[in-house]
């Protein structure tokens, strides 16, 4: 299946991992079961280099300009942005709630830190999500092992640094198990 593998172009700067962009939008009429979640989420493209990342990202609408109940997901290639994925099952996520108006800038800084390998937690990072909601927006970053406190603390501290979060920003860690309940 390597035929379709995305790889860096000549002269481009490779990323440590390939990443896939996904988009989902909740249609109000459907229940939010995991089946309808899977139906509502679409892969929109995979990037393997810094240059491919920018070409792709620059064509996307900014999260702050989205309306309604929508999410962008950027996950390592091969990992679905779902709790049920093998890589996410034992994992969790850091959540940051943002007042309206901040999502575009914070999302960009968070995914730049991710694709640039700023978190220094080995293979732990799975992906990142920005969730656009009516009253607020939510950023989250998912990792594989929810009970590894060294890892989760390091992710939290890196997020604080790269997003330049005020020290009173509330960050919440949720295991995917909690979310499933």
């Amino acid at each position: 299946n390597n035929r379709h593998k995305v790889s860096p172009g000549a002269g481009e700067h490779p990323l440590q991992y390939n990443y896939t962009f996904w988009f989902s939008r909740r249609t109000p009429s459907r229940p939010s079961s995991s089946q309808s979640y899977e139906q509502n989420i679409r892969q929109i493209g995979t990037v393997a280099s810094v240059e491919q990342f920018w070409r792709f990202y620059s064509h996307l609408i900014r999260p702050g300009d989205l309306s309604g109940h929508s999410d962008f997901h950027l996950f390592k290639e091969g990992i679905k942005p779902m709790w049920e994925d093998e890589c996410n099952r034992g994992g969790g996520k850091w959540i940051i709630r943002l007042r309206k108006g901040l999502a575009s800038r914070f999302w960009e800084n968070m995914i730049l830190a991710m694709v640039g390998e700023q978190f220094m937690v080995g293979e732990e990072i799975c992906g990142a999500v920005v969730s656009v909601r009516f009253q607020e927006d939510i950023l989250s970053i998912w990792n594989r092992t929810s009970n590894d406190q060294t890892t989760t603390s390091r992710i939290r501290d890196t997020l604080r640094r790269v997003l330049n979060l005020p020290s009173n920003t509330i960050m919440e860690y949720k295991t995917h198990n909690d979310s499933l309940r």
Binding site: G9, E12, H13, Q16, V50, E51, W54, A113, E117
Partner: peptide, 21 residues
């Protein structure tokens, strides 16, 4: 193995470099 690490400044510079366009 070696990790490929880029800081934000470098990534933003790549955005405006000719190969990215």
């Amino acid at each position: 193995g070696t990790r490929i690490i880029y800081d934000r400044k470098f990534l933003l510079e790549c955005r405006s470099s000719p190969v990215a366009k």
